[in-house]
């Protein structure tokens, strides 16, 4: 039972960590790009949103599966 909880914690925690690193990199690139070419900032914001959607997708599924494991254990 404890192993299942540890597995769920790893799924949720590493998913959140990966998303955070990805968002950090994306934000840094947006700052760089906006500083170099301010007129492109709105376009860059759209592209950042596009990548953020892709970045988020898999960790979200991980969060769902992790919570399912937790709730399945405590049923």
């Amino acid at each position: 039972m404890e192993m299942v909880l540890i597995a769920a914690a790893i799924m949720i925690g590493l998913g959140a960590l990966g998303t955070a690193i990805g968002f950090g990199l994306l934000g840094g690139r947006l700052l760089e790009g906006s500083a170099r070419q301010p007129e492109l900032a709105p376009m860059l914001q759209g592209k950042m949103f596009l990548i953020a959607g892709l970045l988020d997708a898999v960790p979200m599924i991980g969060v769902g599966l992790g919570l399912y494991l937790m709730f399945a254990v405590y049923k």
């Binding site: 947006l30 906006s34 914001q45 960790p59 979200m60």
Partner: peptide
């Protein structure tokens, strides 16, 4: 939106990303 508000864009973006994960959970 806009280059003059890049800090606000990023701050809002990070908040949105965090809340998305929390709300999904």
């Amino acid at each position: 939106t806009g280059a003059q508000q890049t800090n606000a864009v990023l701050q809002s973006f990070y908040q949105g990303g965090s809340w998305k994960m929390i709300l999904t959970g």
